[in-house]
Amino acid sequence: MSTEVKESPQAPVVAPRSPLFGKKERKLITDPLNDNNPITVQVLGICSALAITVKVQNAMVMALSVLAVVVVGNMVISALRNLIPSRIRIIAQLVIAAGLVTLVDIVLKAYVYDVSKQVGVYVGLIITNCILMGRYEAFAMGNKVWPSALDGLGNSLGYAWILMAVATVREIFGSGTWFGMPILGDAKAGTGLYALGYMNNNLIILPPFALVCVGIIIWVQRSRNTKLVEAA
């Protein structure tokens, strides 16, 4: 993933304002990609992550929806953070999330109806996606608008790359396609790899394999990044 943010040319900033893309801001985006990944480390937002990873296209639509809801919601909540009474903050956050998700749902129905049918209830379930509530509660309630937007962006990119990785594995080995394009040859006509007797693995399309797949990603990630290993 080329999500590295280009550093703005270091003009001599005299004002005490923090730069738009300083070290701290870059860390907000890069941290959730690996060390603090929402799925594999914080264990948030698994519910929707697994169900829609049969096809890369669905996964991408889902990831973009979450990105929109997290970034915009983070900015809205951060802008309102001094107005929201702390006793009812959860309900306020839920209402903002539900409003944004309704918008996303309507947009998806209008422009990508097929995908919207397949993704089904999982768009609605973005509301209770724990990444949302986690970021709203842990970051946006206590930070300014711009860092909140970056934090939302970083976390949803961290979510997105896991989704895309799982979906890529499942679509290639399960259906022999990627983004709907046949890449292993035509299964029915028996061309490409299928001519050698290769068959699609139907187990991989079934729900349980999504879990195994995420488990393996966690295994690989933690064996490379040993500080994430849980104590026995």
Partner: peptide, 23 residues
């Protein structure tokens, strides 16, 4: 259990296996 798989990782894989059983 292999150290990197401890905790979260093995729980995912176990849930997957239970899911296969439930099928």
């Amino acid at each position: 259990i292999p150290a990197p798989l401890r905790g979260l990782g093995i729980t995912f894989i176990l849930t997957g296996l239970m899911g296969i059983a439930f099928m």
